[in-house]
Amino acid sequence: MNIDFLQEANKTVDCQGLSCPMPIVKTKRAITEIHPGQVLEVLATDPGSVADVQSWTRRTGHEYLGTVEDGPTFKHYIRRAALEQTEPDKKHPLTASHETLLAAMEQDVQLLDVREPLEYAAGHIPSAVSVPLGQIKNWITEHQHLAQQKIFVVCHSGNRSDTACKILHEHGFHRVFNVVEGMRKWTGPIQVPNGTHSGPASHSKES
């Protein structure tokens, strides 16, 4: 193993004698005290830390450099990632309010509803096309001709639609907008099993 980083460590956090989850908790704190690109040395005696430190770096985007055993002590080396690398879960930047969507709906607009079929059936925006999140890649394959079009994506609370927007963006659909407020706050026109209403889904039983 290349152990050049032994000399490079910019900070050491001592977790010797500590049990799970403390080595990870202390590592997490210590990493914020060095700059991106710098190396953190984690001293631990917990054998579980060997696997845990690696899992932690995978999840947080930091770089696991290696572990050196020194008697009962494990020395783990981690390079802090650049800021953008530590935010792999950043939100899709293009969003649309309900107001924007309503205005756009006056013209012909692509609107995808990525909730599950049952949620869609219970009440959806009339012009919305049902594409459950799990089906989004199939939809992309079949709708390459829409890649340049403006597309709005909605779900219940804005989370699944965020994921869908990111997948669409990765596949060359660059004008996709997440309807962040979701269907749960939608007060515009809605299509329910018994017809169309202008109120929210929860008030749609009067017919």
Binding site: C20, P21, I24, V25, T27, K28, D52, W56, R59, T60
Partner: peptide
Amino acid sequence: NIALAGAAT
């Protein structure tokens, strides 16, 4: 234990 490990990620 789980809550702290989760928060650390």
